[in-house]
Design a protein around this nucleic acid. Structure first.
Lengths: 139, 139
DNA sequence: TTATATACCTACCTAATTGATAGGTAATTC
DNA sequence: GAATTACCTATCAATTAGGTAGGTATATAA
C-alpha cells in the first residue's frame, strides 16, 4: 500500500474543512471526526503536520476550529498526501532516503523512477475543488 | 510503499533468467542469488508463486534450475508484480478485499480508482525485454 | 550405487509500521 | 470560572516486512 490511513484521512479532513468552512467559519475537529466517522484522537495526531506547514490554521478556545489558508482550487492532492505520508514513492528505491549501491547497474530502477513520476503527475493535477465537485469522474 | 522486496526481487529473478537462460539453459537459483546479491533462502520463498502460475519452470537435480515458459517480450511487469505482491492497489480502498461502507458517498474514492488504473496501465505496457534492453529510458 | 546438486517445503524470528487509545495541558470565549 | 477547543506526548496491540534455518524430494554424473 502506497497511501495509508494517515494520508487518506488528512485528505478527507481537508475536504471537510473546505465544505463546512466555506464562509470562513472555524471547523472544529470534533465535528469532522463525527461527520467522517473517524477517531478524534487519531485525527489530532495526523493534523499537526498540516498546521505546521501552513495548509490550515487552528484556533483554540470556544468557537475555535480549523480554517483553510488558501482556496480549495489552490491545494493539490499530491502536496497534502506528501506532507502526511512523508513519501509517495512506490518503492523504497526512489524515496530519496534509501541509497542503493546497485543503482548504477539496476535494470528496474528507471522503471520505478518513471512510475514515481507518473503517480506524482497524476496526483498533482487534482485539486481539493476537483474532489469536492467530483466533476472529473462524472460519466 | 506499494511494491515490497517480494515483487522487486521477483522481477530481478525473471530478468536474470531471461538474460542467463536465453539459449534454453536451466538457471539455478543459487547463481541468481549470487549475481543479484540476494538471500537464496528468501528467494526460495518468493519464487514458488511464479512456478505455480506457469511463469517459469523448475527442474530438480544436478544441472537443474529455472527456465522461462514464454519469450521475454511476452511478460509484463504488471503480471509479475501482481502475482508476487498480491495486490498493486495504492490504497486498501481499491484492493477488492476491503469493502468500505462509505464508498457510495466517498469523495476521494474515484481518484483512488483512477490512480490504481493509471499505475496498472503503466506497468502493463512494460515487458521483460523492455527492461532488459533499457531502451525505453535511454536519453 | 553413491555423491552431488538442485528444487521444493515449512517453521520460526525480529524489527518496524500501522492504526489507533489514553490522559493530559494551554488558550480562548461566554 | 465554566466550557470548549486546539495541542502535546506516551503507550499499545496487531500486522507486515524481510528475512533465517533446517529439512526433504528428485535428478544427474562419477
Amino acid at each position: 500500500m502506497m497511501v495509508s490511513t494517515r494520508g487518506r484521512y488528512a485528505l478527507r479532513v481537508m475536504l471537510d474543512i473546505a465544505e463546512h468552512g466555506s464562509n470562513g467559519e472555524n471547523v472544529p475537529m470534533k465535528d469532522i471526526a463525527e461527520r467522517e466517522d473517524l477517531s478524534l484522537k487519531y485525527l489530532e495526531q495526523i493534523v499537526p503536520v498540516l498546521t505546521k506547514n501552513g495548509m490550515i490554521e487552528g484556533f483554540q478556545g470556544k468557537g475555535g476550529g480549523y480554517r483553510l489558508t488558501r482556496k480549495p482550487e489552490e491545494y493539490t492532492a499530491e502536496e497534502i498526501l506528501r506532507l502526511t505520508e512523508g513519501s509517495l514513492a512506490p518503492v523504497s528505491c526512489v524515496d530519496g532516503v534509501s541509497p542503493c549501491e546497485r543503482a548504477a547497474k539496476c535494470k528496474t530502477l528507471p522503471m520505478w523512477e518513471e512510475l514515481d513520476d507518473v503517480v506524482d503527475t497524476y496526483l498533482s493535477a487534482i485539486t481539493l475543488s476537483d474532489l469536492l465537485s467530483g466533476d472529473k469522474w462524472r460519466k
